[in-house]
């Protein structure tokens, strides 16, 4: 395999594209397996209010969900729900501006970094299969937005940690289910900043030797893939999918 991931490194320090691909595929398989399990579990429910339970098939769940989203009845239009209640998270804003700010920074930071990563990955693949995609140039181009969205995400994470630690009511009601999500997210953000800092020799590099950049980057990528993708169906991360689908199914909610 001639194409290598993180082409900004010297040849000796590069983490191979194959390694990344294997980890990514494993993460995706674990994610898909978990999603199928969840959808089969949800598929044990009935297809409508007051009806008999179903057989436990993922298709039953999907059909029920789509039917409910498309059903007529009270509630707002699909697009209104999508924009105001899912993308802009109006329901949280109505209840707590602080919680909304915390959540929207994490949502925007996370989603933007995810999309940027996907685009960078796509450029690497294009280069690999013979197109002149120039992933190195792209990486330079997205360097600033990458930093900006990383800091946005960091702000959200810091607020979340402060709430969990110092707001009595929040702290007393925190359980492992909540903590794992926050610990995972913190780990991803911190390792991301450190690995990038080592590579660029900035403050976040903590003065670590440049030779540690590849394993640091690898660690960050593995952690990110595990938490961002693989662990979603098995943890509170599941709300990233279940909550928007619930809001859509209930047409914006009451």
């Amino acid at each position: 395999m001639s194409m290598e991931y993180f082409s900004g490194f010297t040849d000796a320090l590069r983490i191979t594209f194959v390694q990344m691909m294997i980890i990514a595929i494993i993460a995706i398989v674990i994610f898909l397996y978990g999603m199928i399990l969840n959808m089969r579990k949800w598929g044990l429910g009935s297809t409508g209010y007051g009806l008999e339970p179903s057989s436990g098939s993922a298709m039953v769940f999907l059909k029920t969900l789509i039917a409910q989203i498309r059903s007529k009845g009270h509630g707002q239009p699909f697009l209104t729900t999508l924009v105001l209640d899912i993308l802009l998270q109006r329901r949280i804003l109505r209840r707590s501006p602080l919680r909304w700010f915390m959540h929207i920074t994490m949502f925007v930071g996370w989603m933007a970094l995810f999309i940027i990563s996907l685009i960078m990955f796509a450029f690497e693949v294009l280069e690999l299969i013979g197109f002149d995609a120039n992933p190195a140039a792209l990486r330079d181009m997205v360097s600033v937005p990458n930093d900006v969205f990383s800091y946005i995400l960091l702000v959200g994470v810091i607020i979340a940690i402060i709430r969990r630690l110092f707001m009595t009511n929040v702290r007393e009601n925190t359980i492992a289910y909540d903590s794992v999500l926050l610990v995972g997210l913190t780990l991803i953000v911190v390792t991301g900043f450190i690995s990038d800092g080592i590579r660029n020799g900035t403050f976040w590099g903590l003065g670590l030797d440049y030779a540690t950049a590849p394993p640091a980057a690898l660690f960050h990528v593995v952690i990110s893939l595990l938490f961002c993708i693989a662990y979603i169906p098995y943890s509170k991360y599941m709300h990233m999918l279940a909550t928007p689908l619930t809001i859509l199914a209930n047409k914006g909610g009451e």
Binding site: W42, G45, F61, T64
Partner: peptide, 9 residues
């Protein structure tokens, strides 16, 4: 029994 697939989600 009596729970819809969406309610389980």
């Amino acid at each position: 029994n009596n729970l819809t697939a969406v309610q389980l989600m």
